[in-house]
């Protein structure tokens, strides 16, 4: 039974089409990455997933049933725009938000304290929210989304604005939750995080799904035509006919080849010309490369330069 099932959803705001015929499925126990450039419809999709807005057409199912507000008690949501009551004490705020998700006051309080300890912000409990740093506020919001032990966790840009230490702390927390069998959906621009953490991804551009599937499927559908070379000496081998595109950073080059087989020919030419090869690494494209390529294809090359910021 899929946790989330979107079937050809469509949303139009006045004249702008935000989401167009989007379908996707999230299975239990997966870490799902929702990717896309700015303004591509990620937040609109998430809002429809949790009933904040209603799709103009298409259907949304949560936990195997058509959308029903009661199911929201099983969903934890961290919005992209962080929002907390500034004047409220942290603990009061967490208890209030926990109660809104159907917890009793006592449970909400004890879980809040436990979570604060887990993400190392115990000293903030008695403070007012406005006295805290942005990173701390983000952790509080993170806790608020998880207090009621949701089976589906939706996080819009969860790591933006966090320092590496804290970003890793929250990443590990999400990975632990996935191990417990929860489904986690998060949207991000950080492809390295997605590559490291996600089991499945969906790439949206201009409101349409351009790519989706498990990470392995997505990667294996692309040829291993990337080469990372570290060399010294003659660099004319970079002009080999097999090379489609080369970026040379003085001794380190990233190559994109026409075919998988081309790698051997390029290496042979380098050897023949007496170039010293320190490293010659044949790889599949990174997710970032796939992302840029697909988004560009959906926009047309020139337009995409300004839009892709991944």
């Amino acid at each position: 039974m899929p946790i989330v099932e979107l079937e050809k959803i469509r949303k139009v705001y006045d004249t702008k089409v935000a989401v167009e015929g989007l379908s996707l499925t999230i299975e239990p126990g997966t870490m799902f990455g929702l990717l896309g450039p700015n303004g591509s419809g990620k937040t609109s999709t998430i809002r429809m997933m949790i009933g904040m807005t209603v799709p103009d057409s298409g259907s949304v199912s949560l936990f195997g049933k058509p959308f029903d507000r009661k199911a929201l008690h099983r969903v934890g949501y961290l919005p992209e725009e962080r929002g907390l009551y500034k004047k409220m004490k942290v603990i009061d705020q967490l208890v209030f938000l926990g109660q809104l998700h159907g917890l009793s006051e006592a449970t909400a309080r004890s879980r809040s304290l436990a979570w604060c300890e887990r993400v190392q912000i115990t000293e903030a409990i008695e403070k007012k929210t406005e006295e805290l740093s942005k990173g701390m506020q983000q952790k509080i919001q993170f806790i608020a989304a998880l207090l009621h032990e949701p089976e589906l966790i939706i996080m819009d840009e969860p790591f933006s604005g966090l320092d590496p230490v804290n970003a890793e702390l929250l990443q590990d927390t999400l990975i632990d939750l996935r191990k417990e069998g929860k489904a986690v959906l998060f949207s991000t621009h950080r492809m390295d995080q997605v590559e490291k953490m996600c089991d499945a991804i969906a790439l949206i551009s201009r409101g349409k799904l351009v790519l989706s599937g498990s990470m392995r499927e997505v990667k294996s559908s692309y040829p291993r035509n990337r080469v990372h070379v570290v060399f010294s000496g003659d660099e004319t081998f970079l002009q080999n006919a097999e090379v489609e595109e080369a970026k040379n950073y003085a001794g380190v080059a990233e190559l994109k080849l026409h075919s998988e087989a081309g790698a051997q020919k390029v290496l042979a030419e380098a050897m023949a010309r007496g170039t010293v090869i320190h490293r010659f690494d044949v790889k599949e494209p990174t997710l970032e490369e796939i992302f840029i390529e697909r988004v560009r294809a959906s926009f047309g090359d020139e337009e995409a330069r300004g839009i892709v910021d991944a």
């Binding site: 904040m52 507000r69 969903v75």
Partner: peptide
């Protein structure tokens, strides 16, 4: 105030 602090987004995820 709730609009500028964006608390709405959190609240509307659970209540009408």
């Amino acid at each position: 105030e709730e609009k500028t602090s964006r608390v709405f987004e959190v609240l509307l995820a659970t209540i009408k």
